[in-house]
Amino acid sequence: MLRAVDGVSVSIRKGETLGLVGESGCGKSTLGQITARLLEPTGGGLFYKGEDIAGSGSRNQQDLRRRIQYVFQDPFTSLNPRFKIGRLLEEPLKLNRLGKAAERWSKVSDMLESIGLDESYRNRYAHELSGGQRQRIGIARALMLNPEFLVLDEPVSALDVSVQAQVLNLLKDLQQELSLTYLFISHDLNVVHYMSDRVAVMYLGKIVEIGEMEEVYAHPLHPYTQALVSSIPAERAAQKRERIVLQGDLPDPSAIPSGCAFRTRCMHAHDRCFSETPTLADVREGHAVSCHLWSEESYSVNEIKEVRTASL
């Protein structure tokens, strides 16, 4: 049996954006889909406003779907090519039997306006739109039912830089306007840093570090996070910095290494990492890391700090 997500505990506060970063295959999309109840977890609990929603009944689930929505990565494949935009946006209202035809019509108009597209887009098909416009429709569709919580799965990865900025601005505006809570999944650390209040770093199905965005960005503790942060391209050419280049590939998720899953690529790996799986524990207030280096007296904190400043 393959564990795509293994023993993850994470909480998201109302109104915040939690960024979720990790490499492909680390389970970040799976976690996002479980959060939005598109997948059923094999074990563990999922609490929304204090209520366990994992495996809850179908009526309850429909109500939850209304409150928790999902925006997919690829705006090219997540919109039905045979529906006009107007119908795409109206669909969620129809399915939930909300409002009369006239009300639905005006709701679609309002939504188009709030994402910055004019009324003429109602009669267009998805293929007539650019990538950025399509992604806005994807976001608008998710917002039609007035959700409280959005799972954004790589919402800008398929877009060009200049268009990416339009969509990120829109997401920020909507969050403020509608006081939304976001789970923002991305592999792009710059984008996550820009969007998020807190960040969780995943590696092979586990969260290896979680904390305030600024804190994790400035003082990454887990060797994996340190490598990730060092791989962010410098802002200006003059600030070229030394990268920590990790050796090897992500191990096969069906044969996860014993002990710490990261030990095969970790430059600090020692005996204990082979035998014992580290657990996520607070190192500072609100900054937790799952690494033996931080739970041991033998390996002093200063020592690692030195290693890091030397290699950064």
């Binding site: 990268r243 280049v245 990790l246």
Partner: peptide
């Protein structure tokens, strides 16, 4: 992925 990207650039 980013960590692999770093290797290839190297």
């Amino acid at each position: 992925d980013v960590t692999i990207q770093a290797q290839i650039l190297e």
